[in-house]
Design a protein around this nucleic acid. Structure first.
Lengths: 227, 227
DNA sequence: ATTTCCTCGATACACCGTATCGCAACACTA
DNA sequence: TAGTGTTGCGATACGGTGTATCGAGGAAAT
């Protein structure tokens, strides 16, 4: 019985694990945003039937949770921070940069508690850098306040980026970027302070805007720490 | 030709406007969350075919935009604030309370720029209360920083509420609420600071937690205002 | 009275997340 | 080695989604 007589062995199912699933999902999201992530498409990218994924996760939301924790793995600091301030600022900066690489992260940030191993490790890193700087409750309030600012600022920034992109790549000018709608609203005279701000406000770049707000918050934390 | 001979006049289409559409959508979202809002269900609630809605909006996202602005209408202050700090804190508090009434708001906050009339009016109110307290750029940074904190804090709080609800209504205990997963992670010893915080940290209620963080941020703003 | 226009909404399409379940390949028993 | 039990894969199916298309029919204009 030669090879030619024997049929091919049945194709073994493609090997699968969470890592491969999450990688495929992240790739899809990077290319087309969160809405481009469907279990069917993730499965197709892995040459696998859609139902196969349910062995590794029981819900699409869980896939999102895994994706978020995958990003947290990217942002773990390589070396321990010098002091508490550097720890907090570094964490915030790294999350922001990750969100600029993976814009879909902005859609997920703060949406569900992040309890994956990498998210926990990131939190642990911040907490240990704050250890002993103040009492436990103050430390916790500090971390939560900085995180809240970070989440909100990132979401706003990404929302702005998308709006710019959608309204045709105009960049600096708020009014023109937002199209005629905002101009018309401002022209009604009902929003004088807003109009003045749009007209006379300085255009600041996103990096600086984020960093400045973060510094303010960190100054507040420093004050509460008694430093 | 008697009445009996004449057919009934054809049923006139139900009268419709954005207000009614948005009200129906908000009601659905209040009852079942954002995911319970589908154009078909909104239309059904108004005794109307789904496609009818496309005369009033061109996308589901636009419906969400309208819903958000509807909530902004709820939170416009009744009387002008006494000073800048009250203006900022009042705005943040009112948004938060609105988000607790309409939890779906947390899913939308910061997701897209809010340019509806009520959102603009809310921003105008804050800006006018800050008028002259500092230079324009500082004022803008203040508003953005407070808004970022507010968005992030609200999202975290609502995410926590939902998690509590999902894990079976346990309330105070982080470990037990999060179920065995977190306990197991903490037991590994890889997260000593986190473990200490969970073990020894005081349980603070949500109102106070939000207010404290907000006060910190407002203190930072005050410092930058030179007050 | 006739024609034009516009609007409504039925139908259709492609896609979604996921429940169900028959089948086939494996591990184990005799 | 033959038979049997078990497991897990994935085809199929279901009830939903957002929205494009387009025919019919009432309102308005001539």
């Amino acid at each position: 019985m030669t090879v030619w007589d024997r049929p091919e062995p049945p194709t073994r199912p493609a090997p699968l694990d969470r890592e491969r699933i999450v990688a495929a999902a992240v790739a899809l999201a990077d290319e087309g945003g969160l809405e481009a992530v469907s279990l069917r498409k993730v499965a197709a990218r892995l040459d696998v039937g859609p139902m196969r994924l349910y062995g590794y996760l029981s819900t699409k939301e869980e896939l999102f949770d895994l994706m978020v924790d995958e990003v947290y793995a990217e942002i773990l600091p390589e070396e321990p921070p010098g002091d508490w301030r550097e720890a907090l600022r570094g964490h915030a900066d790294r999350i922001r940069r990750a969100a600029l690489r993976h814009e879909w992260l902005a859609d997920l940030l703060g949406g569900r508690p992040s309890l994956g191993p990498n998210a926990l490790a990131a939190t642990e890193g911040m907490l240990s850098a704050l250890d002993g700087v103040a009492d436990l409750d103050t430390v916790m309030r500090a971390v939560e306040t900085v995180s809240a600012y970070t989440t909100g600022a990132i979401r706003r920034e990404v929302a702005g980026l998308r709006a710019e992109r959608a309204t045709g790549l105009s960049k600096l000018d708020w009014q023109r970027a937002r199209g005629p709608h905002v101009s018309r609203m401002l022209a009604t005279g009902r929003f004088p302070s807003l109009a003045r701000l749009v007209h006379d406000g300085t255009e600041v770049d996103a990096d600086e805007s984020f960093a400045t707000g973060l510094d303010w918050v960190l100054d507040a934390v420093a004050a509460k720490f008694g430093l």
